[in-house]
């Protein structure tokens, strides 16, 4: 990586660090404030002017919030939904992207344009008919109903297709000569070459699934199948919102995903460099 870098003069280095530091501060301080505020009492959260550090650290926001529902059950449901949905998304999206980028066939443009256009239909707008379909297929009130409908996300197809377009056909041709079939070309050659794009789609899918609450809220009507985001949403009432619990739950709900991201970061970004086009 370092070898690749063309800027190694110290001055520029300093400027880069300074810019990055200022940028990260802008990005991170609001988040830090959430974390700190989650240890404040409701009265202190409502204080004006606001405090930065808690006057008195209290942990009851956490204990009381968690005591109100079965935290581990919700957490497990969230993990199950996020992981399986992401896996399905990755596989079917990359298959579709492979077809759309490496084959010429009648209907290709139409399928692609249609996908791109529907890509921008906000889920809120078609929620009702989508749910009617889910119910008709018997998937209402199952985790499957949360997982499957958004899996064919055009966004994922789009990201992967864009990336696959940049991959040379040489290797495919070489493999063909060796007698490889369509599927093994996709599986053994295309997928490894696409690691960076797959990583981006993974991040996108995990984030999206983990944070989504409206779709699970509609589909699931049994409390034992609730996900973590539904637990967070419950504290928003008509007239009164328990912000202290909302904040505590927010922090709890981002911890797993921060952990995943921290763990994956090496593979996500640095790993990309070693694969990429050098495959």
């Amino acid at each position: 990586m370092a070898r690749k870098n063309r800027i190694n003069r110290k001055k520029t280095n300093g400027a880069v660090i300074l810019l990055l530091a200022v940028g990260s501060a802008l990005m991170f301080v609001p988040v830090l404030w959430i974390i700190l505020s989650s240890f404040k009492s409701l009265a202190e959260i409502y204080r004006s002017p606001p405090t930065f550090l808690p006057e008195r650290w209290i942990f009851t926001n956490y204990t009381e919030a968690v005591a109100q529902f079965r935290f581990l059950r919700y957490l497990w449901n969230s993990i199950l939904v996020t992981l399986s949905a992401t896996l399905i998304t990755l596989i079917i999206n990359s298959m579709a992207a492979f077809a759309l980028s490496k084959y010429q066939f009648p209907g290709r443009s139409i399928i692609f344009i249609l996908m791109l256009a529907t890509l921008m239909i906000p889920i809120r707008v078609i929620m009702l008919p989508v749910y009617l379909m889910v119910a008709r297929l018997g998937m209402a009130n199952t985790l499957l109903g949360i997982i499957i409908p958004p899996a064919a996300t055009p966004t994922g197809v789009f990201i992967l297709r864009q990336y696959m377009l940049t991959i040379s056909d040489e290797m495919i041709d070489a493999a063909k000569i060796d007698g490889a079939g369509h599927f093994s070309i996709y599986w053994k050659i295309m997928l490894p070459l696409c690691t960076p794009a797959l990583a981006v789609v993974t991040v996108f899918s995990v984030m999206w699934r983990w944070n989504d609450f409206l779709w699970p809220l509609i589909v699931i009507n049994r409390e034992k199948l609730f996900t973590l985001q539904l637990a967070l949403a419950r504290f928003r009432g008509e007239l009164v919102t328990d912000w202290n619990y909302v904040l505590a739950m927010t922090v709890l709900s981002i911890i797993p995903i921060v952990a995943v991201f921290a763990g994956m970061q090496k593979y996500l970004i640095q790993g990309i460099a070693s694969t990429g086009l050098k495959g």
Binding site: N93, L100, A152, D173, H182
Partner: peptide, 30 residues
Amino acid sequence: AKKKKPLSLAPYLFLLPNTIIFTLFIIIPA
């Protein structure tokens, strides 16, 4: 580089799973 290939069933099969879900849960509801 993008070569012409003879028409085959393969691209349609690759598109199949995505398209089924896409049609059921996006096109028809829309």
